[in-house]
Design a binder for these strands. Structure first.
Lengths: 215, 215
DNA sequence: TAATGTAAAATAATCGATTAATGTCAAGCC
DNA sequence: GGCTTGACATTAATCGATTATTTTACATTA
């Protein structure tokens, strides 16, 4: 895989997660060619990767669609995220060193600054806000020591994030407080509290999303 | 994705799992072309899928290798398999209906017949044996109700299976007894026992493999 | 003899062309 | 008017060709 292929892959996956490629929409290779500036067989290579990860659905000889979203799909992904991330969090808390702590604090700081902006009504940077959310959660589990687990979690998290970008508005103080509680529990190596807060945090996001899930 | 693409993908993934494409070996597109009878760009499409799943590693502009194996890798995959499969098993036991029970019994019957053959010293059908092993475990979790979970588990199971095909010989009565215990616990909807047996079963396989892991 | 540089060969990545399949629309039949 | 069939257009899938990169072999130099 080359730089062009990697750049393409990242851009397309990003565009799916952040909604620029709309859920359930038909993927037209000629449109992709214009949007991403690569030839059709090269784009097909990338589509294959995204199919394997579940961001794109191949429809036999009729091309591809962006993976659909649904309430059931959100619940399914959220449950899997909870399973994986709680497990990874426990491992991380048990294994994380000082570098990890610094990494977690730094990521939380950036997230909390962004949350202050959202709190003040500045909705212009939703994408950056979710990016920092992502970074914080990745930081928390980064010391778990399992390459396979982090790989699977990364995909599941992005699928979850896709729903959030589609559905979610800022939940307010609740979410910020949960992030802070996660930080504290992590630094205190309190695995039970961390897991409990994380479950509450994710389930809270899902419940909030269900309220706006008008499909 | 077309029939040719799907056939290719299945064949290559199968060949990686069952060792025909050797771990850590350089993947030569010209060799693949001869082996699988498709053109290089088509093969590249399939390689992209396998990269996303972790069966193949892309090395930038230097092509691809079959994913390496290691003791740490086996432990990593086994732990993830345990996490996913125990969770899926619990869900399946809670949700499975009569059709599911019939499916599980049928799969166990086929596996136990094969294990009798292995028991008698017939080592000629290791591949079919592991195929039935796969079928039994898939049957057990098939009623879990989570598409995403089954998808992820399928990949993880195949990665685990790859180690087994490489390392494992028949463990004897112990494995057969564990499969029977799993069947009984499942039909009795005894989730705690089922999970406990499954953990023992997988960890037993790992320990057995470590004994022969001479790398 | 070992290290370095260069050219050629081999291989990988990307693209345009060709073939195959699907979708759309119009005409004919009931 | 509704349904079916056929023709044509569009799109997708696959392949061969081209370009780019890496590897290998050989010559030169220290």
């Amino acid at each position: 895989m080359s730089k062009l292929g990697d750049d393409l892959y990242r851009a397309m996956r990003h565009d799916i997660v952040f909604g620029r490629l709309d859920a359930n929409s038909k993927i037209r290779l000629s449109h992709l060619k214009e949007t991403y500036g690569a030839s059709i067989p090269t784009l097909r290579e990338i589509l294959n990767r995204l199919v394997s990860e579940g961001f794109v659905v191949a429809e036999g000889k009729r091309g591809h669609i962006v993976a659909p979203i649904s309430k059931e799909g959100l619940k399914d992904i959220a449950d899997l995220r909870i399973l994986l991330e709680c497990y990874a969090l426990r491992l991380s808390l048990a294994k994380g060193n000082t570098d990890w702590e610094a990494h977690v604090i730094s990521a939380h700081y950036k997230l909390s600054q962004m949350e202050k902006r959202m709190q003040s009504g500045d909705d212009s940077a939703r994408e950056a806000w979710k990016q920092y959310d992502w970074e914080f959660h990745q930081a928390l589990i980064s010391a778990c020591g399992s390459i396979e687990l982090l790989q699977v979690h990364g995909i599941v998290f992005d699928k979850y994030l896709r729903y959030q970008m589609r559905l979610l508005t800022f939940r307010g103080d609740v979410a910020s407080a949960e992030h802070k509680a996660l930080l504290d529990a992590a630094l205190n190596r309190d695995a039970d509290t961390a897991e409990s807060v994380l479950r509450t945090h994710i389930n809270g996001g899902v419940a909030h999303s269900f309220q706006v899930f008008a499909k």
